[in-house]
Simulated scan of single mutants.
Amino acid sequence: MNSLYLASQSPRRRELLTQIGVQYQMVSVDVPEQREACESPSDYVCRLALQKARAGFQALQSRRLCSSEELAKAVVLGADTLGVLGDEVFEKPLDHNHARQMLRQLSGASHQILSAVALVSGERHALRLVTTQVNFRELSDEEIDAYWASGEPCDKAGAYGIQGLGAVFVKSIEGSYSGVVGLPLTETAELLKDFCVPVWQAQD
């Protein structure tokens, strides 16, 4: 049985892994989230997920966070999520005005959430990308401002959290709910199985 390390500070991803009984340890990474010129949204989100997983594995090596025996059984998970409307990418809002702009664009429209998950172990890696369509109802400016004041949108791709107060904006989705939250669980569990990391473990 291999040991999993999560290269993410996202509380949503931690909660989702715990939800399916995956035991893991945290590893801190710093990967710049800057889209390259002419890079498609799908290429961008996949690159970030894989870079985070690779950076996590390198951190285990360089910082000597585990023994050589533990490193041989270490698997690092990296993930990234972003929203797409037309050709525009929606990441985390920079401020109130940016969040208001994004939510106005999403209002009454359908957009896509791209969620990529990558696993790295030694020289081996695997990657999955999940696309979900999210359909919003019409939003008023008063709702948008009140939502920002709640504090929830600050660290969310697309400036909303479907698992929280932002759920009232969503008419329907087509695809992976957990992918919209930040980690597509079906695909993640399949990858973990391939890397001999079990789900449904009893939590310590």
Rank of each mutant, 00 (worst) to 15 (best):
G86H: 15
L114F: 09
S67K: 04
I173E: 06
S10N: 03
P198S: 01
E190G: 01
S62E: 13
E36R: 12
D80K: 08
Q133D: 11
T81V: 04
M102Y: 10
E190F: 03
L17V: 00
M102N: 09
A72N: 12
K73Y: 04
V76D: 07
R14W: 02
D95L: 05
Q19K: 10
S121E: 15
L183S: 14
A146L: 11
R124S: 07
I113T: 08
R124F: 08
K92C: 08
A55L: 03
L71K: 08
G179L: 09
M26T: 05
R54S: 11
L77C: 02
P93L: 15
K171A: 08
A146E: 11
S150I: 11
Y5N: 04
S28N: 12
E70Q: 10
Q105I: 08
C154E: 14
Q25L: 07
S40Y: 01
A49I: 02
V130P: 01
L185K: 05
R35K: 12
E88C: 05
V22H: 13
V117A: 04
S115P: 03
Q61C: 07
Q163M: 09
S3G: 11
L119C: 05
F90A: 08
N2M: 12
V89N: 10
C154P: 03
S62R: 05
R35L: 10
N2L: 10
V170P: 10
S121H: 15
L77F: 00
S110N: 03
S62T: 11
V117E: 01
K156I: 12
I113L: 13
K171E: 03
A74H: 04
S150A: 11
K92P: 11
V130A: 06
A37D: 11
A149P: 08
Q61H: 13
Q58F: 07
R47D: 04
V199M: 00
D155F: 00
E15S: 00
Q34T: 15
A126Y: 03
Q58N: 03
D43N: 10
V29N: 07
L82Y: 05
S67L: 09
R128T: 10
E88W: 06
G78M: 06
A79K: 01
E174V: 06
Q9V: 15
A157R: 13
Q51R: 09
E39L: 10
C196T: 01
A157T: 15
C154N: 10
I20G: 00
Y44F: 14
Q23G: 08
A7W: 05
I144S: 13
H125F: 09
V120L: 02
G78I: 14
D95N: 10
Q34D: 15
P41I: 02
L183N: 09
R64Q: 05
L192Q: 00
K171D: 11
V29E: 04
G182K: 01
R128G: 05
E69Q: 09
C196E: 15
F169Y: 14
R64D: 01
A149Q: 13
W200D: 10
T81F: 07
P198V: 05
F169Q: 10
S3F: 08
L85P: 14
L4R: 08
A202I: 01
E15G: 00
G182F: 01
V130E: 06
K171Q: 14
A157Y: 13
V75N: 02
V130F: 01
N135L: 13
E39W: 09
L50G: 02
F195P: 03
F90E: 04
Q34Y: 13
V168S: 15
R12V: 00
